[in-house]
Simulated scan of single mutants.
Amino acid sequence: MKIEHRHAERHVLNVTVDNEPGILAKITGLFTARGYNIDSLTVADISEDHHISRITVVTNGPPQVIDQIMAQLDRLVPVHKVVDLTEEGPHVERELALIKVRGRGDDRVEALRLADVFRARPVDTTTESFIFELTGPPDKIDSFVALMREIGLVEVGRTGIVGMMRGSQPA
């Protein structure tokens, strides 16, 4: 008998919630209590009257675990809607990073050249370092950070992933 192994898959979940104290703790508590990992977490107010927020959670798991996570999220009282962008279809994901790089001489020139290739913008410059701002998909940021490690990476700060469905329909 052949046993099929299901690998953990990366999923981007958009959770629309009431903007009230404690909702983020409820959602992260749900993940923690069940041993699910959160790879990225962002929260933003999305309504004009400040009553609704969108929480974007990036997690990994086999399909049955993702289905269980979504069902449990859907049962939380202040949750309006849970959408798995990964399953829904074409979507856009972006992240913002600030990357501090030390560099003098040739390393400085190389850091600026690579920043130009990746469309990273210097937002702070000293004679010994740069802070670059870079937005894009997570793999683009990962690649830039890996290259900066070879030059003189000092520090990285990342916002976490936000995502939306493509097209005119809301998720």
Rank of each mutant, 00 (worst) to 15 (best):
A8L: 11
A8T: 05
L13K: 00
N14R: 00
T16H: 04
V17Q: 05
V17S: 04
D18L: 05
N19P: 00
P21I: 09
L24G: 08
T28W: 06
F31E: 01
T32S: 15
R34G: 07
S40N: 06
L41Q: 03
T42L: 07
A44M: 02
D45N: 12
H50A: 11
H50Q: 12
H50R: 14
S53V: 02
S53A: 14
T56K: 00
N60C: 10
N60E: 15
N60P: 04
P63E: 12
Q64S: 14
I66A: 10
I69N: 05
R75I: 08
V77F: 09
P78R: 06
V82T: 10
D84E: 04
D84F: 00
D84T: 10
L85Y: 06
L85D: 02
E88V: 13
P90C: 05
H91E: 03
E93M: 04
K100W: 09
V101Y: 09
R104S: 13
R108L: 06
R113W: 03
R113V: 01
R113M: 11
R113E: 13
L114E: 02
A115D: 10
A115T: 02
D116P: 03
A120C: 08
V123G: 08
T125D: 09
T127L: 14
E128M: 11
E128A: 15
F130P: 10
I131S: 09
T135D: 12
G136V: 02
G136K: 11
G136Q: 12
P137F: 06
P137H: 13
P138R: 03
D142W: 07
D142Q: 08
S143I: 11
E150P: 03
G152F: 09
G152S: 12
G152R: 06
L153G: 01
V154N: 03
V154L: 14
T159Y: 01
T159V: 08
G160I: 02
I161H: 01
V162L: 00
G163Y: 02
M165Q: 08
Q169P: 00
A171R: 06
A171C: 10
A171G: 14
